[in-house]
């Protein structure tokens, strides 16, 4: 039996009929075609599939698509606006916060949630805030630097542009 799922993803409405067992990450990638959200471990540990549901970071491999019915989702594709990278994306670029890049979408979504909760985190708070994401290249030093750099840009110089971009789908 199929179930109707109506969701808003990155500000756009989508409606599909899906099997109950379809995981949200497979829905995003295979049904909607948003392949920026990655599948890493498939065991709820690595955080590569992190997206925001109603503004909260979650692992989309550990939720069924049917559970997302009526919710607002933001994926990595929803961060850049009008061709301009989100400040966190820019910071990962500037600080070389990635090596192979596979874990990067999840890290950026987790970092966006972290900075929403705590716009000016210490290094320890960043490391704790990203505990649910694994980088098998072990590039954590530059990932932490990227988040620190993004926090400065987003908190310091004004703009909440970054933050409103993150929640655009959620508010």
């Amino acid at each position: 039996m199929k179930h109707k799922v109506a969701v808003t993803i990155n500000g756009r409405k989508h409606e599909h009929e899906v099997e109950a067992r379809l995981l949200l990450v497979h829905y995003l990638r295979d049904v909607v075609g948003l392949t920026g959200t990655h599948i890493g471990c498939d065991t709820s540990q690595c955080g590569a599939c992190t997206i925001h549901v109603d503004g909260k970071a979650i692992k989309s491999c550990t939720m069924f698509a049917v559970q997302a019915d009526g919710r607002n989702l933001t994926t990595i594709e929803g961060l850049a606006k009008e061709g301009k990278l989100h400040p966190i994306q820019q910071a990962f670029w500037d600080e070389h916060g990635l090596q192979c890049g596979y874990c990067t979408p999840g890290f950026i979504m987790a970092a966006a949630y972290l900075l929403e909760q705590n716009p000016n985190p210490t290094e320890d708070e960043i490391r704790r805030g990203l505990e649910g994401n694994l980088c098998r290249c072990t590039g954590y030093v530059n990932i932490v630097k990227s988040v620190q750099s993004a926090a400065k840009v987003m908190g310091g110089a004004s703009t909440t542009a970054g933050r409103s971009a993150v929640t655009a789908g959620g508010e």
């Binding site: 909260k56 970071a57 979650i58 692992k59 939720m63 987790a110 805030g129 505990e131």
Partner: peptide, 9 residues
């Protein structure tokens, strides 16, 4: 318990 993403669920 778990991590941020887990604690949200």
């Amino acid at each position: 318990v778990g991590d941020n993403q887990v604690r949200n669920m």
